[in-house]
């Protein structure tokens, strides 16, 4: 049902219907922001990336063909945009060493960390944990990171990830397993 609705909305967008575009934006701006946020761990930058993705979606609307899920189409654009952006210099994203400390204030990570619990100790623990997760994910290679974020964080199926990244399902599965094991190893002290 959602799939058909999204495709119908995008077909309306293709005809220049901004209300339909707004409906898609209302529905997917948050997941897309979170997708980028798990890649760059910067709130402002991730929203920029999300909006630029939607702008590409709007600009390229006339070329849209409803050949698959809208989300696959959208995340393909997002992924391509991300790949184009990653090598650009002078952006806010900075390489993070697994060993080096992070400047929480400067990269926006602080505000994105879990802050559950009541006491300061719990809060500090959650923040530390969130930071460790971020560092662990950022430490993955580009290929593994994209698969991991799409699969483990966005909850996408292997087949959809394969469509988005243009790789076979088997490759998705193996990359996902590698990424998951790597992250699990890095976060072993937080796992029971």
């Amino acid at each position: 049902m959602d799939r058909e609705r999204d495709i119908n909305l995008m077909l309306r967008v293709k005809d220049g219907d901004l209300a339909a575009f707004e409906a898609l934006y209302a529905r997917y701006s948050r997941p897309l922001t979170n997708f980028f946020h798990r890649l760059v761990w910067d709130r402002c930058f991730s929203e920029d990336l999300m909006q630029e993705t939607f702008l590409r979606l709007w600009r390229g609307r006339k070329g849209y063909r409803p050949s698959g899920k809208f989300t696959t189409y959208m995340f393909q654009i997002a992924r391509n945009h991300w790949l184009n952006e990653r090598d650009k210099k002078n952006r806010r994203i900075s390489p993070v060493s697994m060993d080096a400390g992070r400047d929480e204030e400067s990269n926006g990570l602080k505000e994105s960390l879990p802050a559950r619990g009541n006491g300061p100790m719990t809060e500090n623990l959650n923040r530390e944990l969130g930071e460790k997760i971020a560092i662990a994910v950022e430490g993955l290679s580009e290929k593994l990171r994209l698969v991991f974020v799409l699969g483990q964080i966005q909850g996408m199926k292997y087949a959809d990830i394969g469509d988005i990244l243009g790789i076979p399902v088997g490759t998705v599965k193996s990359r996902m397993a590698n990424a998951e094991k790597t992250i699990r190893g890095r976060l072993s002290s937080y796992l029971r």
Binding site: R30, H37, R43, E47, S112, P114, E180, R184, L191
Partner: peptide, 22 residues
């Protein structure tokens, strides 16, 4: 356990006025 850990990460919302800027 890792899945649970990952799910503890808070979601990020687009800022207010996001659509206007769009």
């Amino acid at each position: 356990g890792l899945a649970e850990l990952i799910s503890s990460l808070p979601e990020v919302d687009p800022s207010a006025g996001s659509w206007s800027r769009m």
